[in-house]
């Protein structure tokens, strides 16, 4: 971590906090967001310059759903530190693979890699290889805010980072799979949103994730027992 390049990057990271206060409250500060998730988010959409955590059941699919809507607008997306992504599912979710750049193994300099990617990428999906400590967290969130990008952290405890909003998949109910027959088709997922920006008032919603096309759509909750699958003998 002592090369001049790294030093330049960390100087750039640390000199950015001031510009955050100059933000104006306008709707073009929102990235496109799938309608089913808008009620969960404090500004009714993915606000530029914020960090989002995805965790629990369906965390990866939630990450894809957030990326898909941004990718559909023509922006470039990246995933850092996720070596086992189901990219076929990403394509079905609507992420254009030709504009989805993967850095599965970012190595020890991953904060520099992520900071560099924010120069050009609207949204970055990250699984931090190491825990994010205090100073690093401050630099990271400052960089996101300065570049007006969105960072999505996919880790169950968000790797020590305190995101603005954390989306947790709580209960997943799969449909289509029987007892020795059928196959997985769709899943109803309860999603809980909590975090700093929601001031201790968690919000809930139920979505199809995936629906029959592999995407995220709103659903009415069904009173099914937790974790049970329909059609079980």
């Amino acid at each position: 971590m002592t090369s001049p390049r790294t030093e330049r990057a960390s100087v750039a990271l640390s000199s950015t906090v001031t510009s955050a206060a100059t933000l104006t409250e306008r709707s073009d500060h929102l990235l496109p967001t799938t309608p089913a998730l808008r009620p969960l988010l404090p500004d009714g959409g993915l606000r530029r310059g914020t960090t989002i955590g995805v965790a629990g059941t369906g965390a990866t699919s939630l990450g894809f759903a957030l990326l898909a809507e941004v990718a559909a607008s023509g922006a470039w997306c990246a995933a850092v530190g996720l070596g086992s992504l189901g990219l076929l599912a990403a394509e079905h979710a609507g992420v254009a693979l030709s504009r989805f750049v993967l850095v599965p193994d970012p190595g020890a300099e991953w904060p520099t890699i992520v900071a560099t990617l924010f120069d050009a990428f609207e949204i970055v999906l990250l699984r931090p290889p190491t825990r994010i400590g205090g100073p690093l967290q401050r630099r990271m969130t400052a960089r996101v805010r300065e570049r007006q990008r969105v960072l999505v952290v996919a880790a169950d405890d968000t790797a020590g980072l305190a995101p603005d909003v954390k989306l947790t998949g709580a209960t997943g109910v799969w449909e289509g799979l029987g007892w020795g027959a059928g196959h997985l088709r769709t899943r109803q997922l309860q999603v809980r949103a909590e975090g700093r920006r929601l001031a201790g008032h968690p919000r809930h919603t139920t979505v199809w994730l995936p629906d029959t096309r592999g995407r995220l759509t709103p659903a009415r909750p069904v009173p099914a027992p937790i974790g049970r699958v329909e059609g079980v003998a």
Partner: peptide, 18 residues
């Protein structure tokens, strides 16, 4: 340019698309 820089840091093979 950005991906060129990342490849400069990591090596060409570690930045990919699917």
């Amino acid at each position: 340019r950005t991906l060129g820089r990342v490849q400069g840091l990591l090596g060409q093979d570690r930045v990919a698309t699917a």
